[in-house]
């Protein structure tokens, strides 16, 4: 399967998974709106009934901004201090939603919100554990790697009499630092896919499987990642080009740009689903052969990973049967 095949299938899968897009979009909108309304309220109270802010409609105005911050020292602090907590909450929420998203993309569709949330619940614990593991690895490896890259950077720029080596060295160091980080994040992405695909109870085992998978399919996996990065850049460029044509000078103009921004956010979410869908397909088409089973802590999936059929977790199937039975009983009683 080529990357273009994967891309076209992933786009189709992402398009079918509109439930997930809606949920993710609603999540970002609601969380951002909480802060944004706080921000708005701070602005209203800072500006009071002054006419001066009208100047901001013509573009950023340094006098207005500086007078606002001087006259209302620290007025944004309560808003800014919320941001880290919001991010943590969002990461946890993502872990919750991750199971539903991967499962939906693996099936190729999401039939209902209840099915989506049911999948979310099934994988929540494992995805949360994976989040903690990835945070731990990124922190430890990132720190060590940063030190190594820092030493390399210092060596590159030592004795330079101009700033050019510092600038170029900085860019190179940034890239050198980022690449392993991207690799770790890729491994974690595929670990999520494997948790769902294999219904593996062991997060560590799935992480190990995904590590092997990424290294065995290094260029394809990396290529897919960069293709998606390109897609994001194209979407961002499209937003900048289009939004440039809508000056935010009137209420209507502001509303139009708001709509455009929301389309942009939704398109980012869609691109993310395309990426995950591609990862699912790559996993399916190039997954760990059965012959690998039993080695290095690999636990074979209950259902063989190939061919790709939607995997119904045992627990959930059981509980559904139970609930169906309960409903039937209730109906029976009712009659």
């Amino acid at each position: 399967m080529t990357l273009s095949d994967i891309f076209s299938r992933s786009v189709a899968n992402a398009n079918r998974s509109w439930h997930a897009i809606i949920i993710l979009y609603a999540g970002t909108l609601l969380l951002a709106a909480v802060l944004a309304f706080g921000f708005q309220s701070a602005l209203f109270s800072g500006f009071k009934d002054s006419v001066l802010p009208e100047r901001l409609l013509e573009g950023f105005d340094s006098d207005v901004f500086n007078d606002l911050t001087r006259a209302n020292k620290g007025f944004l602090d309560p808003i800014i201090s919320q941001l880290p907590w919001l991010l943590i909450f969002w990461l946890v929420l993502n872990s919750l939603l991750g199971g539903g998203i991967v499962a939906a993309l693996k099936r190729g569709s999401c039939n209902s919100f209840s099915e989506f949330f049911s999948d979310c619940g099934t994988y929540l614990g494992r995805f949360l554990l994976l989040l903690l593991i990835s945070a731990f690895i990124l922190l430890i490896f990132g720190s060590v790697w940063m030190m190594i890259v820092g030493v390399l950077y210092a060596a590159m720029t030592a004795g330079s009499i101009t700033e050019v080596p510092n600038v170029i060295g900085g860019i190179v160091a940034g890239a050198v630092f980022a690449l392993p980080m991207i690799l770790i994040m890729m491994i974690m992405d595929y670990a999520r896919v494997k948790i769902v695909a294999d219904n593996s109870p062991s997060v560590l085992s799935s992480t190990w499987q995904s590590t092997k998978f990424v290294f065995r399919n290094f260029f394809t996996a990396l290529g897919w990642q960069f293709l998606m990065l390109l897609l994001l850049l194209v979407l961002a460029a499209l937003y900048w080009v289009i939004s440039d044509g809508f000056p935010m000078e009137t209420g209507f103009g502001i509303f139009l740009v708001f709509l455009l921004q929301q389309v942009s956010v939704a398109s980012r979410i869609w691109a993310r689903l395309v990426m995950i869908s591609g990862q699912v397909q790559l996993d399916e088409s190039r997954g760990v052969p059965v012959s690998m089973a039993g080695t290095l802590g690999y636990i074979p999936p209950v259902v063989a990973p190939l061919p790709p059929v939607p995997t119904e977790p045992v627990k959930r199937t059981t509980s559904r049967k139970r609930s169906t039975r309960r409903r039937a009983t209730k109906r029976g009683k009712g009659k």
């Binding site: 409609l57 969002w90 956010v265």
Partner: peptide
């Protein structure tokens, strides 16, 4: 006129949404 406040609220919200989306990569 609240237009200017809305303008920067909308911008702020867009930034937050993008920060959230970027953090989703983790």
């Amino acid at each position: 006129s609240s237009a200017a406040v809305w303008k920067y609220t909308v911008k702020f919200m867009f930034w937050i949404q993008n920060i959230l989306q970027t953090s989703s990569l983790f």
